[in-house]
Amino acid sequence: MLILLPLIISRLRLKKVKFFGLLGPNGAGKTTTIKILTGLLEPNLGEVLISGMSIKNSLKKIKSLIGVVPQEIALYPSLTTLDNLRIFGTLYSIPPRELKVRILDLLQVYGLENKSNQKVKNLSGGMKRRLNIIAGILHSPQLLILDEPTAGIDVQSKKFILANLKELNRLGTTILYTSHFMEEAEKFCTDIAIIDQGV
């Protein structure tokens, strides 16, 4: 039997350059919220506006402004780190020269410079998480949405990822971050919202 829990968010406003934490237990509706915010799901009611643009009417433009790091490792496991990033970067319309520099920079920042020619399937869980984030920020998005980016990784990798996200936020990227770890959110987020059973 499929039970559809309603997701009711009366008003959620993200100010620019905030590190916003959306907290809630498993099944609370965090991923559904992200799917609605990124246009993967349509809301029954209401509207999502990003930079003043409606997601309904300007989805393509909004897609260029936002970066998404899904909960699962959304990469091609049989391709190399470099191929994955080249492909995603090109699909974000980053010019080839700029893309090359950007990839090298990000690989260095995230400590994956030696793994550029390694296939994703051969990377460790923490490395895959980091690469997953790089793929989401490759095009320097204004808004970065992360769905539990630290799930299932060791403490060291978790610290490393969160520190880098903080730095990214400091440099001007608005971050919406979901987690079910309160301590983590308290430490890094400027604003927090709690969601439970879709409300």
Binding site: V68, E72, I73, A74, L75
Partner: peptide, 10 residues
Amino acid sequence: DGSFTRLSLM
């Protein structure tokens, strides 16, 4: 493997 989700977001 989620790569389709990523493509859908592009």
